[in-house]
Amino acid sequence: MSSTWAYFWWVILPYVAMAVFIVGHIWRWRYDQYGWTSYSTQLQERRRLKWGAPLFHYGTFAAIGGHVLGILVPKSWIDAIGIDEHVYHLFSATAGLIAAALVIVGMGILATRRLFVPRVKATTSPVDWVAMVLLGIMVILGIVVTAINAPLGHEYRDTISIWFRSLFTGSADVSVALQAPLYFQIHAVAAWLLFLLWPFTRLVHAWSYPLWYLWRPYVVYRSRKATPPPEPGTGGRKWRKIGTPY
């Protein structure tokens, strides 16, 4: 790969994707609260969704956890707590394959649903199709990576992970990324494309997982009148005890 192209794939694309990801989300949040939803189709079809949606989502959670562990956490830290490379790989390959299986089965069910159940298909907008195809590519590549790498045992924590973290220090390390096998490289590039598109799709619902529900009072009261927002710097109380009325 010529160095210009390497520079594009491993430096320019990531930064552009990050910028679009952040600015896109701010823009969407400010201008399109009404479109910010999960677009559930459970009303139209519930039998396949019952298996597809939980499998896909819980599998994805596992996969995200694996990525955090493998990419964000430096290898030295894991070594430091006494988990050597062999144990780590055994664990990550097993857990990774399980997560991959959950995701691919879930995704398969969801995709057939979207493609072949007319009621669901009718609600699918062009952006949804694009997001679905991209997500599908991502997932398949991810599974290929996990499956191929399980026997080969490439230590991505010495290549891709270091490059990824280097993006955030301002001195992107292209050379380590290029040491990774091609299937890792393609997976990483596809990921940036997904991030690029993320703020403009229904994927934004991921940021709205309502954890807040766990500690808010059951019944919410609100005044018909808009209450004036607290002036900046006046420090309104942000946290309330469970059960205190609004």
Partner: peptide, 30 residues
């Protein structure tokens, strides 16, 4: 319904007790 809404998008109005869904805050959790 208000108690079941995880997003906190539904509310009962202080003044007249009418129960409404804040369309901007609803995230479609059903």
């Amino acid at each position: 319904c208000v108690a079941s809404c995880p997003s906190g998008a539904m509310y009962k109005r202080d003044e007249d007790g009418i129960v409404l869904v804040d369309q901007d805050r609803c995230r479609g959790w059903r």
